[in-house]
């Protein structure tokens, strides 16, 4: 089984995409863990899929839709306890 090892650059790139700030030590730990996970998944490549057509889902469902109706009872009425200001806006640190 070929062992795929992710480079440090790849780990840093992935951590950025995942919005994680990792320490040097964590890059080391997560890097080797992620490589191991990838290698584990890679075992699937041993299965012969030449006669199987590709699919994006396995439920075999299709066209699951809702009618265009408002169901107010599903809306959240009270945002108390969440980070909202007096005007009911969520607030985050200014982004620009």
């Amino acid at each position: 089984m070929a062992k795929k090892t992710l480079t440090k650059e790849e780990i840093i790139h992935l951590s950025k995409l995942a919005n994680l700030s990792l320490t040097e030590e964590e890059i080391e730990i997560y890097g080797s863990q992620l490589s191991e996970i990838l290698s584990y998944i890679e075992q699937l490549e041993e299965v012969d899929t030449s006669k199987v057509s590709s699919t994006a889902q396995v439920t075999e469902l299709k066209n699951v839709t809702e009618e265009d109706e408002v169901k107010e009872e599903r809306s959240i009425k009270d945002l108390a306890g969440l980070k909202v200001n007096k005007d009911n806006y969520f607030t985050v640190k200014r982004i620009r």
Partner: peptide, 21 residues
């Protein structure tokens, strides 16, 4: 009338923030 993937009202213009969520 409703949103794309849920049943909150899609009519958001001029409404109190975060009431159609």
């Amino acid at each position: 009338k409703s949103k794309m993937f849920c049943q909150d009202s899609a009519d958001y213009f001029g409404k109190k923030p975060n009431t159609h969520v």
